[in-house]
Structures are given as C-alpha cells and as structure tokens.
Design a protein around this nucleic acid. Sequence first.
DNA 1: TTGAAAGCGTTACCAG
DNA 2: CTGGTAACGCTTTCAA
Lengths: 346, 346
Amino acid sequence: MSSKPTMRDVARKSGLSIATVSRVINFPGEVPAETAEIVTAAMRYLNYRPNINGRRLKMSQTRTVGVLVPTLANPVFATSVQGIEQEANIEGLTVLLTSSNYDPEREMGAVSALLNNRVDGLILTLANADNNPVVDLLLAEKIPFVLLFNQPERADIAAISVDNAKSAFDITNAMIAKGHRSLVMVAGQFESSDRSRQRYDGFCRALDEAGIEKKHLVQVRFGETDLVEPLRDLLLGPDAVTGIVCSTDMLAIAAISACRAHGLSVPGDVSVGGIDGISVGGLITPKLCSAVQPTQEMGRQALAFLRGLIKGQTNPQSLLLPHHLSDGDSIGAFRGDSRRRSSTRV
Amino acid sequence: MSSKPTMRDVARKSGLSIATVSRVINFPGEVPAETAEIVTAAMRYLNYRPNINGRRLKMSQTRTVGVLVPTLANPVFATSVQGIEQEANIEGLTVLLTSSNYDPEREMGAVSALLNNRVDGLILTLANADNNPVVDLLLAEKIPFVLLFNQPERADIAAISVDNAKSAFDITNAMIAKGHRSLVMVAGQFESSDRSRQRYDGFCRALDEAGIEKKHLVQVRFGETDLVEPLRDLLLGPDAVTGIVCSTDMLAIAAISACRAHGLSVPGDVSVGGIDGISVGGLITPKLCSAVQPTQEMGRQALAFLRGLIKGQTNPQSLLLPHHLSDGDSIGAFRGDSRRRSSTRV
DNA sequence: TTGAAAGCGTTACCAG
DNA sequence: CTGGTAACGCTTTCAA
C-alpha cells in the first residue's frame, strides 16, 4: 500500500473489474450510474489518480504537443507560448516546452527529445525555416507541425507569421515619408533568425525604391541589449543617421537606451517610441508587455491549426497575419522629425 | 513496418536480444564495443527512437518536472521559466508547462494534471502560498516542490523569492528620503497575489515609521495596463500624490503611461524610471526585458533546488534573495524630486 | 452490463 | 556477456 493506487486497486476495492473502472473513467455514459458511483467512491477513498503514462503507452495519441522557441526571455515568444498554453489547457492537452537559445545546433536535439516523447505535433520557431534538417525530419516522419514567426519559402509547410519583409518595408517607407534619407537597421544575426534577414530585405527594398543608396546595418548577438558602442558612430559621426529601424521591439528598446546614452533625448513612450531627431521603429508588437498581445493570439491560432493537422482535417499552409504598423504606439515611432536634428542633450 | 520501430525491431535486426539493446542504450559500458556497434547500426538503420513513455511507465522516476506560473505574458514569470528550462535542458529533464492566469481555482486543476503525469517534482508560483489546498495536497502526497516568488509563512516549505515586504519597505523609504510625503501604491488584487499583499504591508510599514498617516492604494486586475482612470484623481486632484510605488515592473510601466496621459512628463528610461514631479518605483526586476534577468537565475536555482529535493539530498527551506533596489535603473525611480511638482506638461 | 486477457515499449532480474 | 521474462498501468476486443 506504499505505492500509488492503480486501477487494479480501485477494481479490487469496488469489487468490480479493471475494465469497468476504465469504462467509468473514459466512457461514463456506457455504465449504469449506480456502478459508476461505486467506482468513483472507491477512487475517492483510495485517492486514485490515473497514470497518464500508462494510457500514453497504450494509445496511439498521446494528447501532448511539443513547443520549441528560441527563448522565453523575449516577450514575443513568451506571450505566444502563453497563447499556446491557454488553448492547450482548454483542449486538455499537455505542453512540453523546450528552447534553443537561438542556436540552430540545439534545435535538432530539442526536437529529438520531443519526438522521443511521442508528441502528437509540434509548434516551432526555428532559426532558419528553409533547408532546415529539423523540418526535413518532421516531414519524413510525418509528424504534424506548425512554424510560428517563421516564413518558409515552401508553400506546403504550415506557418503562422507576419509578413516580415513587408513589415520592414512598410515601416521603412513610413520613416522615409517623414523625411528620413539616412537610416540604419538594427537586426539580430541572420544565422539565428531568418526573420532578421527577411526584415532586412524589406528595409533594403524600401530604400532602393526611394533611390537611397546608403544602407546601414548593425547586427547584434541575440540577448544583447547594449547598443551604445555599436551605434556610436552612426549616431554621433560626421554623417550620422537620422533614423533607426529595428528588427524587433527588444532591439528598439535597446536602441532607445543607446540614443539616450549618447545624449539624444527620448520623449517617447515606454514601448517603441519616437526620439527627437532620431526615429526608432520596431516591428510586430505594438506595445511590449501589454496585456493581450497579438502574439498571444498567434500562439492560440498555432495550436488550433496544429489540432486540425493532427486530426487530418487540415492541410499544411502558410498563414500571414497583418502586422501592426498602424497601431497607436508604433505610429509614435515616427514622431521624430528629421529636420529637428539638433536634438536636446540631456 | 508502418508503425514506429521498437526495441524488439532493433533486437531482431541486430540478431541480439531486446535486453542487450536496452543495455546498449542505458549502460553502454556494460557491453562490448563490438556488440554495441552492431546494435547502434541497427538503430540507425531502422531510425529507432526510444519511446520515453514506455520507460516512464516502468521506472519510478519520470525525469519530468511540472511548472505552474500565473502567466507567461508577464516577463518576470517568462524569464524564470526560461531559467528553469535551461537548467532542465542541461539535466535532460522534460518540462511540463501550465499556467493559472492568476486564478486560484485553476491552480488545483493544473497541478492535478501535472500529478497525473507523474512528474518527479514541481515548481510553482501560486496566487496565495498560505492555507493553499495545492500545497496541502503536495505535502500529503509527498511530491517535492519549490515555490517561486511566493513567500510562505511556514518555514518547512521550499521557496525562492525576494523578501516582498522588505523590498516594498526599502523602495518606499527611498522615496520618503527624497522628500515624498504623499504616496500611492499600485498593486494587483491580493486574492491573486500574496506578493501584492506582502508588498503593500511593506509600503504601509514604511509610511507608519515615517509618521505618514495617509496611505493610498490602487488595486488593478492582473493583465490590466490602463491606469489612466484609476490614477486620475491621485495625479490631478486637489491633494495629488507626489510619488507612486508599484508592486511590479509591469504596473510601473502602466503607471508611467498613465502619468504621461495626464500630462506629466516622464524623462525616465524605458525601464522603471523617474518622472518629473512623480516618482515611480517598481520592485524586483531592475530592467524589464533585459537579456539576463535576475529572475532567470531564480528559475535556474529553483530547478537546482528541486533536484536536490527529489534526490532526497536537501530539505525544504526558504531562500530569500536580495532584491535589486540598488541597481542603476531602479535608482532612477527616485530621480523625481517632489519639490519640482510643477512638472512639464507635454 | 461486466470481465478476462492481450498487449503498448520499456526496464531489470535471474539464468545461462 | 547475453537472453528470457515478468512487470509497469492502462485500453480495448471478445465473450459471457
């Protein structure tokens, strides 16, 4: 009696068979109310707890989904996982969580561990969705999966994302419209994030179409929040930029900090905001840390989509959501006016 | 051959027994290199993947830990989970993630699901650590667990947290030292967060010791980010406060936004910062969203602690970490000077 | 309406 | 050094 009670114990206690106990748990309707009562009484008495691992072993479906994100230290990913978790909670699914820390090498190991757990499906944010061995593996093993934030070239892969290139294109154009002719993009390493590259592409295209030759790019390691040195020359040098386009909100915040450190006043809001003389634009999330983020909804959608794939009711396809450039706070990103370059020093 | 290969298939393929295959996997040292090679070749050939659920069923330990947080939408919890995940990754543990959305009712259901998975241990952030049925259940079932951010009254419960009351006490004192005599605390609902109550206690004690009678408290639902109305009277009324003490960084950010909305200029940094005429102080995390947060380290420590409990090498006890009031950015929280109450209107 | 029994994939004991 | 085999806790078919 030292170990945990099993169905056999419940069966013995209630004087019924283990099969009946199972039925009470799984198909309460198929059993007379009276019998069910006896069984549940025994379960309560024994403090019985079904061992899900027994069930998982027996059944073909594990009702378990695996999640892989670069890191939960980035609120964008964290809130998306929150959305996944909420939806999973409603559906009674178990969530297995892993993170890669932006390291492509670790992705395979993490997914492998998830597969060993026989997850029914996966939701992944990969460093690079194209030519990715993880994607190939999943395709080969026919495990349903949905990419989140990745925007793969192949059309037969399920993915939920904003249009990265277009987002950057639009935000850059908005800054050009404000009069900026000298811009820099701050982005993460392309090896760690295809989103970074796609957004840089959009940035470049906007500049090209505006006939602006000079393109500046500052790349930083993920997790890096100190842009003071990387931006020094571009902010203070002889031909300093008048605007900064950031690939992510976290980078935009870091950029704002750097501007302040260099003596450029920042009247903007705590979320991505405008700077006197320097404009900073972040993509995707209008307001970091706000209660209900679009990214949370993306997570929910990803899980809903995955459930469809698992049931075989849906086919893999890409879903591009509108980005949030028009949102109040992001608009604030362009408040800066390039003509007032002689900005206040703090 | 349609289904996934099992150890039996590997055994057949390699002409050896299933027991030997198991040994190769679990005790490679106990098997001749030559035999091991044959087996691994067969595994590679068949694309064999150990089914962890089989192992879990057989073994007493599942090498799985359950995590319950209020929500990942709060970066403090998200980064702590990131820390847990990192440490789990290193140890080869699987993380089962659930969230309660600050709802005490949902905590029991979530933990119950985790227990059905036969997790080896749990890391929890509960709404209320004292007199909590979840805690009682875990104690009764003798499942190792560590509370994170909770500060239970009982000394025989494992917990890792800052000293909530002391943090609020210190930050309030710092503001009093700056000359503030009229302060309000912005906090979450006490039912959803014992941290809130403990921090309010610290706030009150500081005011009491300074002989300040008037104590203002504004409580908001969790997830609420709009403090414009709740703070209107306290910011603009005839006897408006000169300072705001916030229970969390997220609330501090919301408070800063509200101040701006009411025309009070906020020269502070993107993290919790000072306001002209109004001081805003947040607790615990010096800088929201910065790369390596102390909370991430707390998560790692929690898992390390839990591992000790699981192995039976450690006894449950509370660990109070120093809070980060002295951190550069938090100091900024007191830059506001109560005498310059005639603050710039934006 | 109920029960007996055959696995699910693994580990680990005990023989050989 | 290797193999046979009995569990682990559960679901589900087939009979009664």
